[in-house]
Nucleic acid binder design. Sequence first.
DNA 1: GACTGTGAAGCCATTCACAGCT
DNA 2: AGCTGTGAATGGCTTCACAGTC
Lengths: 210, 210
Amino acid sequence: MKAFKIPEATIVRLSVYSRFLEQADKRGIITISSGEIAEGVGVSPAQVRKDLAYFGEFGTRGVGYNVKDLLHHTLKILGLGGEWPVIVVGAGNLGTALVSYRGFRERGFSICGLFDNDLTKIGKKVGDLEVLGLEKMDEVIAQNNVKIGILAIPAKVAQDMADQMINAGIKAILNFAPKVINASEDIEIRNTDLSVTLEILTFNLGLQRQ
Amino acid sequence: MKAFKIPEATIVRLSVYSRFLEQADKRGIITISSGEIAEGVGVSPAQVRKDLAYFGEFGTRGVGYNVKDLLHHTLKILGLGGEWPVIVVGAGNLGTALVSYRGFRERGFSICGLFDNDLTKIGKKVGDLEVLGLEKMDEVIAQNNVKIGILAIPAKVAQDMADQMINAGIKAILNFAPKVINASEDIEIRNTDLSVTLEILTFNLGLQRQ
DNA sequence: GACTGTGAAGCCATTCACAGCT
DNA sequence: AGCTGTGAATGGCTTCACAGTC
């Protein structure tokens, strides 16, 4: 690995390239150019090359990139290829949907714990997972060496649950609660507020109306 | 409204400020400074002021911003305040979770149609919505003047469904399928791939390990 | 001829620092 | 004294354009 400061936007795109390459590979495509990738994912060819160049020289001048080879590299860069155990806190609609979400499994994420504090939910089955009480969280995290947690709970309790996760050893949190979560520098937090995404749409719809 | 080109990041933050102000208002706070907002949402005070300044002068020097007033302005800028009818295509786990998601209702989004092509799902009830066949989509969009559609379907059919939505009059799409959707310039598309978000986490976890 | 890899240029967003108001 | 609003400075990402390679 070369440089130190890689733009976050590059990582996001790399993840998108990676999936695109997966599809290309499935279709039997052997070689692909930066232009073809660019067209497939909606960015410029130069952007694709720049992004990949952060991590090495994967292509052949005059030819392009070998799909299988580049796919392998992108997966490795993203830390994929193995299995990442993940826990989900919140067994409401969103939480249970995430547990069953195929996209996670396809990319190597396996949900190994689903927790809630609601007694009416504890013990229920979601797929082949049983909803557990929060007191079981530490144990599950330790046993499976879980580093990634997903929060699918109301805003009010989001910070508390994040703290509890972090205490138990979680190093990265994907937060769906509509509330910004704070934690120390060494914990990676990503806030994905679904309403915010819709509100970008309404903002732009508003501009069109003028 | 002043300038023309507003950074997208500004809109994202504006939406976050807006929700933060909502919470502050509920707690009875009358006046708030850029520093307090900044701390609450994890950005710099200068950033808050710059963002707001794109849209007008909402504060009072030496004092700060009136919470209710600023909240009202942010909602208006984002195109909120009324009701936005929204349809969801895909009545799988994610689709049904989105239909029931409270966060949408709280910000003025109301799901008025849920569609699927799976005969075993059509007719089922999700909350007080009935899953409809795709052939009913045009009618629902027209009747409710729907401009926003959400895609919660497999990657394979995502582009087709997007095209069908656009033909029926949809102007903005929130796509959860792990596939980049293409459409003409005047259609606003936002791709929210849940795995991509997790993969940013794994990338950063990878860096830590070194 | 085709396509990658990359320094340089251009562009855009964020931060700084301070004038202006209360 | 406190805090906003903003031009200027900085920093960072993207695009350009071309040398290098097959």
